[in-house]
Design a protein around this nucleic acid. Structure first.
Lengths: 159, 159
DNA sequence: TAAGCCATGTGACAATATAACATTTCACCA
DNA sequence: TGGTGAAATGTTATATTGTCACATGGCTTA
């Protein structure tokens, strides 16, 4: 999956690769990649827009599960905690991680027109937050970096 | 008010200066700095932690107003829209702007221990988000930059 | 088997936010 | 002077997002 773009690509690959990577990582780390967790990750991987917890819940219900909110939130918590998904604070929503390695500090580009969200890798100590933290003597533990705007395709068609 | 720190300072000055600056700015821009808006800004300025909309609402009610949620949200929308306050996405909460100029693109350092939030100025096109956006051809309209961690005082006392 | 842990099932509810419509206020101007 | 339009506020209801608490099941291991 490209890290740099809103490019088109074979989307089935996203899903298959993402699931395999998670499976592998869980096996190595002794984590339980249960059917619900797997299904939630699959749902997230199936979409390049972010999904709310209740969107996830709806899809689980369409699968025939009589799921209540904690079911979705628990699975999402697991996925986020172990780096398989990320929470987009600005949207109160979730998206599958685009990278197959473990934990990291992502930044997101959110297109307000097509709703697509792209993830980029960053250095937690770099950028404007890192600069501000150093200046203030602040110890960063977690960062939220999200930009809203127009993706290349939507910016082009708007012009 | 210091832009760089969790420093101690005369807090009444924060309030007085913030209110005066807003008053001035509204007069110049032809905006209505109504009693409710003024009071909400005053409440925000009175605290270096962020406040939720319902915290604000409670304080308005303690003033004797029989205020409903839209009252708080409208005032907050106004203050945020015109740069007198900011929304902290990570906390679903609001904080008074630390700077007296108009619109800008802030970053926030959020101490998870003492709850204080400090604002720093940034360049929207700089940092990790700017880099990612340039690489992807993304047009940034708004950024969210928030770091959670430990402020100097709390980091010191933890060690 | 018993004990313990983890995941899940389930009902209730808390916290955050907005829609929709009525009413008031006030500046502006015919 | 009084109308009129825009902005602000009042009010009811509801939508959306997120958590608590406790019960159940299933698996491991002493």
């Amino acid at each position: 999956m490209p890290t740099d773009a809103f490019d088109s690509h074979d989307h089935q690959d996203c899903i298959a690769e993402g699931l395999q990577a998670a499976e592998r990582h869980c096996a190595e780390a002794g984590l339980q990649f249960t059917p619900i967790r797997r299904r939630v990750l699959e749902i997230l991987l199936g979409d390049h827009t972010s999904l709310g917890a209740y969107d996830i819940l709806d899809r689980l219900r369409r699968d025939g599960l009589n799921a209540q909110p904690p079911v979705a939130y628990r699975a999402l918590d697991f996925l986020v905690k172990h780096g398989f998904a990320h929470r987009i604070e600005r949207l109160n929503a979730f998206i599958a991680c685009s990278h197959t390695n473990g934990k990291h500090t992502p930044a997101f580009l959110i297109c307000r027109t097509c709703q697509r969200v792209v993830e980029a890798e960053t250095d937690p100590a770099a950028g404007e937050l890192g600069r501000a933290a150093r200046q203030a003597g602040f110890v960063i533990e977690r960062t939220v970096r999200e930009a809203e705007g127009l993706c290349p395709a939507c910016a082009g068609s708007a012009a």
